[in-house]
């Protein structure tokens, strides 16, 4: 059980962030509450942006959007990959075709698919979710397929098949329990990658600009010249949050795999 504890810890941290973002912000993130481009003070711990809006409040509100996008899109990628991976593990000509299709998709980098999809769909949270969800399923499908095939080779599965167990029965009683750690590790991986991808989409200006997310705050910091004003925390706060949370997810995934 030690292996899942890291994943649960990260999820609890995210849940706390979301609860805080629903209940409390020091200032209204959309209203001016100080001088523009203000250096960090006790009133504004992370400083203010070009319109005098408090950046800490933006970060707190942004965690809600970021977690929402990351969670939904990684669940989308995970379930798509899981279903396709499981189908491709059934022996036969169709599974060979599907596995070649997975191999084809896996070489196309997620960034390209994300740019193509989110630029065609236009900037909105839905299009971000579709773009990210559509980018990461091949990795999931590939690992699920490999693990399922190795489970299907095991003697007790063969025994189960010999006494007349159908594919669905084997799926329910043998495959699912045995690949659950792969699914959880993939969930950690896709969560980490979704967080990073969300920031990349926002950084390129393809994100939803109506709702603050960590990526969008970094984007604003970059285009409003935070570096030239010496507002370090404005740039670093979203970057550190994104890499810290996704670092924790990647570590959680590693500890699940190497149990």
């Amino acid at each position: 059980m030690r292996s899942i504890s890291k994943l649960i810890t990260v999820l609890i941290i995210l849940a706390v962030l979301v609860i805080i973002s629903f209940t409390y912000t020091p200032y209204d993130p959309l209203q001016s509450s100080g001088k523009p481009y203000q250096q960090p003070t006790w009133d504004h711990i992370l400083g203010t942006d070009g319109l005098g809006r408090d950046i800490l409040s933006q970060m707190i509100v942004g965690s809600k959007t970021t977690v929402f996008i990351a969670l939904i899109s990684s669940v989308t990628a995970l379930s798509t990959g899981l279903i396709i991976g499981l189908i491709s593990a059934i022996r036969g000509i169709i599974s060979d075709i599907i596995s070649s299709i997975i191999d084809s998709f896996i070489v196309i980098p997620p960034l390209l698919i994300m740019i193509l999809v989110s630029s065609t769909l236009g900037p909105s949270i839905i299009s971000e979710i579709i773009a990210i969800g559509f980018s990461y399923w091949p990795q999931v499908a590939k690992t699920v397929r490999a693990e399922t095939l190795s489970v299907l080779e095991r003697p007790y599965v063969e025994a189960s098949r010999s006494i007349g167990g159908g594919y669905l029965w084997i799926l329910k009683s043998h495959i699912m329990p045995n690949i659950s750690h792969v699914v959880l590790a993939n969930f950690s991986y896709t969560m980490a990658m979704s967080l990073v991808s969300e920031s990349i989409i926002s950084f390129l200006g393809l994100g939803d600009q109506r709702y603050f997310s960590w990526g969008l705050i970094f984007y604003y910091a970059f285009i409003q010249g935070a570096i030239y004003y010496g507002l370090w925390l404005w740039v670093l706060a979203p970057a550190v949050m994104i890499s810290l949370i996704s670092y924790m997810f990647l570590e959680a995934g590693r500890s699940i795999i190497s149990r």
Partner: peptide, 10 residues
């Protein structure tokens, strides 16, 4: 792992 979890542009 940190380089994997940090966006490239950072």
């Amino acid at each position: 792992i940190f380089t994997m979890s940090t966006p490239y542009f950072v």
